[in-house]
Amino acid sequence: MPICHIACLDAVDFCVLTNMAAMCRRLGFQVTWSKTVEPCSLLVVMRGERFSQNDIGCLPEGTPAVVFGYVGKSCEEILHSLRDRAGKILFLPTSQKLVPQDIAGINVHVAPPPVYPELWKKELKAGKYPYTYLGNRKNLGDDPWQKRLEGWIKGGDVEVWGRWWNGHCPVVKQHGPVTIFTVPEIYRSTIYSLGLMYPFQRDTGMFSGRYWLAPLCGAHVLVECENYCEAPGIVLYQGDVLPDALDDLDARRALQGEAVSFWRQKTAALERVIQDWLKNLDGKLDLSRRPRRAVGLKGDLVTMGLKASSIIESIALSRGKDLSPLTKLGFWK
Rank of each mutant, 00 (worst) to 15 (best):
P39Q: 06
D247T: 04
R210Q: 13
S314C: 12
S208T: 14
E230M: 08
T182H: 14
I180G: 10
K122A: 07
G72L: 08
R163P: 12
K328G: 14
A269P: 06
P184V: 04
S310A: 14
P325V: 09
R188Y: 11
W277F: 08
L43R: 04
I78R: 06
I89T: 08
G195D: 15
L246Y: 13
V31Y: 01
K125Y: 12
K88L: 00
L92I: 05
I3S: 11
Y198A: 13
R290D: 09
K88V: 05
I89S: 10
R210M: 09
V16I: 10
Y198R: 13
K279S: 15
R319I: 12
V12C: 07
L301P: 06
Q238R: 07
E49N: 11
I6K: 06
K122M: 12
K121S: 10
D276H: 09
Y70S: 08
L17Q: 03
C15Q: 15
W165T: 07
G48W: 09
P114G: 06
I311E: 11
Q146W: 14
L140H: 13
D244A: 01
D203Q: 08
N136P: 05
L249I: 02
C8Q: 08
D157I: 08
I186V: 04
A214Y: 04
E224K: 03
L196A: 11
Q238L: 00
N166C: 15
P232I: 01
A11Q: 02
Y237K: 00
I311D: 09
D143A: 07
W145M: 03
A251S: 08
F29Y: 10
Y116N: 09
H175T: 06
I186N: 10
R50Y: 14
P243L: 03
Y192I: 05
L329T: 14
E226V: 01
I274W: 09
Q146I: 09
C8H: 08
S34G: 05
L92S: 00
S193F: 13
A231F: 02
V158P: 03
R253G: 00
A268T: 14
I234W: 02
D322S: 14
L285V: 02
Q238Y: 02
V110Q: 05
G205Q: 02
L285Y: 03
C8S: 06
G296E: 14
L216Y: 01
L149V: 01
L9A: 02
T190L: 04
I103L: 07
R83T: 10
R319F: 15
L59D: 01
K298P: 03
R252N: 00
P93Q: 04
I311S: 10
G257Q: 11
L281M: 02
K307S: 06
R26M: 12
P64I: 04
K333P: 04
N166F: 15
R202C: 01
L213Y: 03
D322Q: 15
Q256T: 00
G209F: 14
V71Y: 13
N136D: 10
I180R: 10
L323C: 08
P184E: 11
